[in-house]
Computed example of a mutant assay.
Amino acid sequence: MIKCVAIDDEPIALSIIQEYCKRFGDINLQCFTSPIEGMACVKETLPDIVFLDIEMNSHNGVELAKVIPPETCIIFTTAYSQYALEGFNVDAVDFLHKPVFYPRFEHAMQKALVLVNAKGGQIKRRDTITLKVEYKTVVVDIDDISYVEAMDNYVKVHRCGLPTIISQITMKEMETLLPDNRFIRVHRSFIVSLRAIEEFSNRQIFLKNFDRHIPVGRTYTDAFNNLYNIFKQNNNKK
């Protein structure tokens, strides 16, 4: 479940964010028209994402953003486009200009989730990742993933003994989500789990429980061999 807080002194704006979060799915959202109460909630609960209006009657959102914990992603929402540069200067993930429409909201959420997963990995082991599948948000267990395959503007996540997942995300974004000590990109179209490898050569990889082989691109050969040897040595020590 993604923890979010929305702070905006306009109730209508909050109701739109609330509706969009329900549509996106798997979000626990708390809304506040009072910046003071909202910031107290942020400090206490440490949400993954904060939706923050910039120009409120009593407070400026850019100034509030400066005291939000760095682990929390900020998405600014405002009717005043002149504040966009200021917003990005405080490392905001995105800037939503009112009135906000759902496709733009969804795009901002996808950007934020990449960072949420990446930041979480710096603090604790990333056992799961969150992917958008059609109109739903799906939590995927990392241990189930054998390999990831590029497919135009989507990726196919192949899991051992489980249905394949298709998500609209780039391979570069997928690399960011997966822990780099357990997964490696071996081709422009493939990322593989080191745990799933059964046999390999400089040119191809055979995975456990899969009939197909995965090609190793020329530019990825050395990196793959080095990482796999380290992974194998660490496992032998256990």
Rank of each mutant, 00 (worst) to 15 (best):
Y102C: 10
Y135G: 15
A84C: 10
Y154M: 05
P99R: 13
A92P: 04
Y80P: 01
V140G: 04
T128V: 13
A84S: 14
D127M: 13
V100R: 09
K111A: 01
Q168P: 00
L85R: 11
A150E: 03
K98D: 05
D141N: 10
V139M: 12
V90C: 01
Y135Q: 15
D127S: 11
D143L: 07
S167I: 00
R126K: 07
L96K: 11
F105E: 12
K124R: 04
I123E: 15
T77R: 04
I75N: 09
L131A: 09
L162H: 12
V116W: 01
T128P: 00
T130R: 13
I129D: 01
A118C: 03
E134Y: 15
Y102K: 12
S146D: 11
T130A: 09
I75F: 12
Y135P: 06
G120I: 03
D91P: 04
V100P: 03
T77C: 14
V140H: 07
V93D: 03
G161M: 14
N117W: 01
R104L: 10
L113P: 00
F95A: 04
Y102V: 14
R159T: 14
V140R: 13
V157L: 15
T130P: 00
V116L: 02
V114S: 01
V138R: 12
R126G: 02
Q110T: 11
Q168V: 06
G120S: 09
Q110W: 01
K136M: 02
F76S: 11
T137W: 00
D152W: 06
K124P: 00
I142L: 06
D144E: 15
G121H: 13
G87L: 06
A150N: 03
A79P: 02
P99W: 07
V116A: 02
P103D: 14
D94K: 08
H158K: 15
Q122H: 04
Y154H: 10
V100K: 12
V116Y: 03
H107Y: 05
L96T: 13
I129Q: 02
E149W: 11
M151I: 08
N89P: 01
